[in-house]
Design a protein around this nucleic acid. Structure first.
Length: 872
RNA sequence: GCCGAGAUGGCGGAAUCGGUAGACGCAGCGGAUUCAAAAUCCGCCGUAGAAAUACGUGAGGGUUCGAGUCCCUCUCUCGGCACCA
């Protein structure tokens, strides 16, 4: 055995061995339980970042652990290969997006292999390849025919200088990121997926996902936002014609307090008013400025203008003025809202700003409303009752709504309605690098889906991109076609699909990536039965990606593709971000120049506190910024490649798993990496020393009589550790504590001072177990060590070590002794001692005598196996 | 603005069901080894205090024999907000 731990040699040898033996190949096998371990596939951005390393290490640990536990494990990998960055890179470097993407995939695949992940590369998928996206197009045509995909107007960010649609990310402070132009909202026709048709099921089946974090289920529930309210109308007359202005509210109990109505700038009433009043027209124009992101709309200053149009209150007939409000969204609900300033915080602020009437119609404990400032109780549903509301006075929230809805119904002006916050999913993108939408526009036949025998609609890969609109719309060879129905000349759709579409079903395709005849086949039934066993990815995907994937699974189920599989992911682990300290220098113009942590020396005081930092290159001070998510903009990223090159994959994997639990953010620390490397060197040395003295058969039951108390205690710790690590890997998914437990075990091993044959056998037993316990996290070194301890034996064949129950028994246990809840000592009692014995021992103890000072205790609390508390 | 999380020594974190706060690691300090250094090994390491002890888990209140853990109020930080992926 090599004396020194040399990670590079061990790791490359292990990886070559795994490749030769196809160690990670997954084959359907009904004789064993399956374990489908899925990590979110990466966008091929160039090279792996620490977040990827973390994500895939977690997946690999779970995959390998289940492998040892006897499961038939599938761990696939692929590439979420369509998307905007490829187009940006194309503009910047003049490389076609396809070429850039494929080069990145090749490089990043090499990095994943160098990290030693047990991935079945035979199932690799890249979503930008026609053999993948053709099935997406095929499904699109089916859904289009079923009416689950339809066309309507949608609002986008329009850059008037570059003459192009921008993503929300490309709009910074209301301006285009490249042109600097003020962004406008523009309505264009787009295809939508009818996710709202599945809103109820998406909500209800959240309850069938006990393996998901509660916070994710809650976020999805709130996102879907099911509410029961009342949809009702304000009748009005305009240009001599009668019409109705519809609104929706969850607070119909406050309807008697309506003092105005607000409509969106795109609402027909706003358009009518704008055509007759230049001031209103100017305001409507102003509302079109700025982007469409909801966070911006929700935080901007609320503004409005009166239209002069009045509508009738549906119950009182009172005239109520219609305002145009910049905070009312045309795409949500009816594009109009009733305003009750007394009982809605936003309406309250708006009414005060414009001097509109405020009428109290709800009171809690008879309290009078005041105009000084908003009080929480003004909107209290639980305790409020109607006042100043005529026949509704005295009614509570639910009763008032029932009565009001009934009266509205009697006049045919409204009814109760279930409403969702969830909106249909707009999937059209005016971009090149995406899956072409398989529709042909015919002047006579309308929108015609591309027939199966003409699929896939292949995206041309050799294009030049100039940043002004999609190149597809400038390529007649792409869009000139004939109508599949009537044969006349027609135009092919040039929009592509949202890349969330590709990532909504890739996990099903992994089961059968080689099927050229169908989107999916029966192998999905094997691997996905009961749901994918574990899904791992960033918490930032808690809503959109995970909701769309759930939706797609239900869609595909209803198209008859995947049996009765309704939920794709049985268990979900959302990992935290990888963060690192930031450093910067302020330039003369006030701009911050960010400096990479690798180029900075930290100065600490005698206690280790950071007191300052200098740039290594010039020795001059730099400012210590906050700890933030690793990013290009803050230049605080640590390149995993440098880490692997220096310490090897095992150290990188170990540090990342040890530094924090997977669902919390992970703070990068170079010193911590050094510590992880030191631990592996120590393990290597311990095994080296043991093997050097001669390997022996592991401890067996026949030797039980020879155990000293120290060896007995050590074996107890060993078998406790085996149990704990299994629990941490399998149930808790808390890998940092599993590693800590193994560290503790090896600390105890180091304190064993015994060279007897039985001690050697116990050491052998412990080290064999340690190699297996560590294998999921650091597979390369673990296999090398196991091979030294048991020549000719394979970790994968060994399986997870057995807990020896007899090693766990104890004759005597220690209880803590509290007086008035404060720790005052401890008691040693026989393991099976009864309550009376424990109480007597507690009262007899020195600590108890001292604290009680002769007084009788008021109460004695005994928690079996844990403590005695004497209440004096 | 709305929805969801989080806050524990100098640092990352542990405490799994309300029961010994600070496991494990990093940094630091002291020692051994060394011509010396690196590496390695051993010891110390929340704050105050000589000690007994007191205080201590973002802030303020509460429940309990007992609270990092449960409840209420607040502060700050982070994730998401439908075209970043």
């Amino acid at each position: 055995m090599q004396e020194k731990y040399q990670p590079a040699d061990i790791e490359l040898a292990a990886q070559a061995r795994w490749q030769q033996t196809a160690a990670a190949r997954a084959v359907e096998d009904l004789s064993r339980p399956k374990y489908y371990c899925l990590s979110m596939f990466p966008y091929p951005s160039g090279k792996l970042h620490m977040g990827h390393v973390r994500n895939y290490t977690i997946g690999d640990v779970l995959a390998r652990f289940h492998r040892l536990r006897g499961y038939n494990v599938l761990q696939p990998m692929g590439w979420d290969a369509f998307g905007m960055p490829a187009e940006n890179a194309a503009i910047q470097n003049n490389v076609p997006p396809a070429q850039w993407t494929y080069a990145n995939i090749e490089y990043m695949k090499g990095q994943l292999q160098r990290l030693g992940f047990a991935i079945d590369w035979d199932r690799e998928i890249a979503t930008c390849k026609p053999d993948y996206y053709r099935w997406e197009q095929w499904l699109f045509t089916r859904l289009f025919e079923k009416g689950l995909i339809y066309k309507k107007l949608g609002t986008v960010n329009w850059d008037p200088i570059d003459q192009t649609v921008l993503a929300n990310e490309q709009v910074i402070d209301g301006r285009g990121w490249r042109s600097g132009a003020l962004i406008e909202k523009r309505e264009i026709p787009m295809y939508y997926m009818k996710i709202t048709a599945y809103a109820d099921e998406l909500l209800a089946s959240l309850d069938d996902l006990p393996g998901w974090p509660e916070q994710v289920r809650l976020m999805q529930k709130n996102w879907i936002g099911k509410s029961t309210g009342v949809r009702f109308a304000f009748p009005y007359e305009l240009d001599g014609k009668s019409d109705r202005l519809w609104v929706f509210t969850t607070r119909a109990d406050t309807i008697m307090g309506v003092t105005f109505v607000a409509v969106a700038a795109e609402h027909p009433l706003a358009t009518w008013a704008a055509a007759r009043n230049p001031e209103i027209a100017a305001f409507v124009e102003e509302c079109k400025k700025g982007g469409v992101a909801e966070a911006d709309l929700a935080t901007m200053e609320k503004k409005g203008i009166p239209t002069g149009i009045h509508v009738s209150h549906p119950l009182t007939g009172e005239q109520v003025e219609v305002w145009v409000g910049n905070y009312v969204l045309m795409g949500y609900g009816e594009g109009a809202v009733m305003a009750v300033p007394a009982h809605d915080e936003r309406d309250f602020a708006f009414a005060k700003k414009y001097g509109l009437p405020i009428k109290q119609v709800i009171a809690v404990d008879g309290q009078e409303f005041s105009l000084d400032g908003w009080q929480e109780w003004y909107a209290d549903k639980q305790n409020g009752v109607c006042v100043n509301s005529g026949k509704y006075d005295g009614l509570g929230y639910a009763a008032a709504i029932d009565a009001i809805a009934a009266d509205l119904g009697a006049r045919a002006l409204g009814e109760k309605k279930v409403q969702f916050r969830l909106r249909d999913w707009g999937i059209s993108r005016q971009r090149y690098w995406g899956c072409p939408i398989p529709i042909i526009h015919c002047a006579d036949c309308g929108d015609v889906p591309v027939p199966d025998n003409q699929l896939p609609v292949v995206l041309p890969e050799n294009v030049t991109i100039d940043g002004a609109g999609s190149p597809l719309a400038k390529m007649p060879e792409f869009f000139d076609t004939t109508c599949p129905k009537c044969g006349k000349p027609a135009r092919r759709e040039t929009d592509t699909m949202d890349t969330f579409v590709e990532s909504s079903w890739y996990f099903l395709r992994y089961c059968c990536p080689d099927n050229a005849e169908a989107m999916v086949d029966e192998r999905v039934q094997y691997w996905c039965k009961g749901g994918i066993d574990q899904y791992i990815g960033g918490i930032e995907h808690a809503i959109l990606h995970l909701l769309y994937s759930r939706f797609f699974t239900k869609l595909m189920r209803d198209v008859g593709l995947i049996g009765d599989l309704g939920e794709p992911f049985a268990n979900l682990l959302t990992q935290g971000m990888v963060v690192a300290p930031t450093f910067y220098r302020e330039e003369e113009n006030g701009k911050k120049q960010w400096i990479n942590p690798a180029d900075v020396n930290l100065e600490t005081d005698e206690r280790g506190r950071a007191v300052g930092a200098t740039l290594a290159a010039d020795g001059l001070p730099v400012v210590i910024g906050g700890t933030e998510k690793m990013s290009k903009s803050k230049n605080n990223g640590v390149d995993p490649q440098a880490l692997i090159d220096r310490y090897g994959a095992d150290t990188a994997r170990l540090f990342i798993m040890f530094a924090s639990p997977p669902d919390q953010s992970l703070e990068w620390s170079d010193a911590g990496v050094e510590g992880a490397f030191r631990f592996l060197k120590r393990v290597w040395k311990i095994v080296h020393d043991h093997v050097g003295a001669g390997i022996v058969p592991a401890f067996g039951a026949a030797q039980a009589g020879e155990l000293t108390p120290a060896l007995k205690a050590f074996r107890r710790q060993l078998h406790q550790t085996i149990g704990k690590v299994a629990d941490d890997y399998g149930r808790r998914k808390q890998f940092n504590t599993a590693i800590a437990a193994v560290m503790e075990l090896l600390n105890a091993y180091g304190k064993l001072d015994d060279a007897s044959p039985v001690a050697r056998a116990v050491r052998q037993e412990a080290l064999e177990a340690v190699a297996l316990l560590l294998w999921p996290i650091v597979p390369h070194i673990a296999e090398a060590l196991y091979g030294e301890l048991k020549p000719g034996c394979q970790v994968a064949a060994a399986g997870w070590p057995q807990v020896d129950e007899t090693a766990l028994t104890q004759d005597e246990i220690e209880l803590m002794l509290q007086v008035n809840g404060k720790l005052r000592g401890s008691l040693r009692v026989a393991a099976g001692a009864d309550r009376a014995t424990i109480e007597a021992a507690a009262l007899a103890s020195e600590a108890a005598q001292k604290q009680l000072a002769g007084q009788a205790p008021k109460k004695l609390i005994v928690v079996p196996g844990r403590l005695v508390n004497i209440v004096a």
